[in-house]
């Protein structure tokens, strides 16, 4: 501790009479988290459950959404906010399935933030049917690192890893798995061709986050798909009550 002013700074520390140490104790994510809280209130006012999907590029998020929309058509009203660095290709694929979708392009940024979702939500509400939803998927930018830090106001966070990526993703990218409620292993139809011990990937993920619910499925063959559909029906029926807020835990700092 510094003897002159009693602060925690130990070196390179000036005590000129006009300098002053200001105690702040505020998260750098405070601005993002405030907007995320507004988004959450907005979702709840709309009666929609929001799910933030996080994975590496190419893990099959969009394909899973396409099959999910087909499967739940007429049962659950689905909307999608797509996040990508460039292009609206994913939004075109989702639009072809006949559900409201908006594409947010980050123009280089590696993640979606709460302000982009705020904007996306207002755009989505202008789409036909976009203000009458039960379930909103937010497909984050393909990246297993940066999106994990930013709370978007979602109710649930889902992290996905595809079989060709290998089983060591949980161990290498812990934050995404610690902050999620659901871990989906995708492309299980490729298990015969890749060395992907499902039990090992599950154990690694549970080691990081014992509360994680793990599913393994193939959107192509339909194997394991029912557990995913049941999960979506369950969170949608709960309408946000009893589902955990995604993202960083609130109140972890005094």
């Amino acid at each position: 501790m510094c003897d002159s002013c009693g602060c925690d700074l130990t070196d390179n520390h000036s005590h000129k009479t006009d300098s002053r140490v200001i105690e702040v104790h505020q998260s750098l994510l405070a601005a993002n988290d405030a907007i995320a809280a507004e988004n959450r209130a907005h979702f709840e006012a709309m009666g929609v459950v929001a799910i933030n999907m996080i994975s590496s590029p190419g893990s099959g998020k969009t394909t899973l959404l396409e099959k999910t929309i087909e499967r739940l058509k007429g049962k659950i009203r689905i909307g999608v906010i797509e996040g990508d660095i460039e292009t609206d290709r994913d939004a075109q694929r989702i639009r072809a399935k006949g559900v409201p979708v908006v594409q947010m392009t980050t123009g280089g940024a590696c993640h979606l933030d709460a302000a982009q979702i705020h904007k996306g939500l207002h755009l989505l509400e202008k789409e036909p049917g976009g203000d009458q939803l039960d379930l909103l998927f937010i497909e984050n930018v393909g990246n297993l690192v940066c999106p994990a830090t930013f709370d978007l106001g979602e109710h649930q966070r889902v992290v996905l890893v595809s079989v060709p990526e290998g089983p060591d993703k949980p161990a290498k990218y812990p934050k995404a798995f610690i902050s999620s409620q659901i871990f989906v292993i995708t492309k299980t139809d490729l298990l015969p061709y890749f060395d992907f011990p499902v039990a090992e990937a599950k154990a690694d993920a549970l080691h990081l986050n014992p509360r994680l619910q793990v599913m393994a499925l193939s959107a192509t063959s339909g194997e394991g798909f029912e557990a995913w559909i049941e999960y979506l029906q369950e969170v949608t029926e709960n309408k946000g009550s009893g589902v955990q807020a995604g993202g960083r835990k609130e109140g972890t700092y005094p």
Partner: peptide
């Protein structure tokens, strides 16, 4: 037991600023 639940440790907090 090997299953341990992490608590905290995820903060990114601006604590103090010295300015003149």
């Amino acid at each position: 037991e090997t299953l341990l639940i992490p608590e905290g440790g995820d903060a990114i907090i601006l604590n103090q600023v010295e300015m003149e």
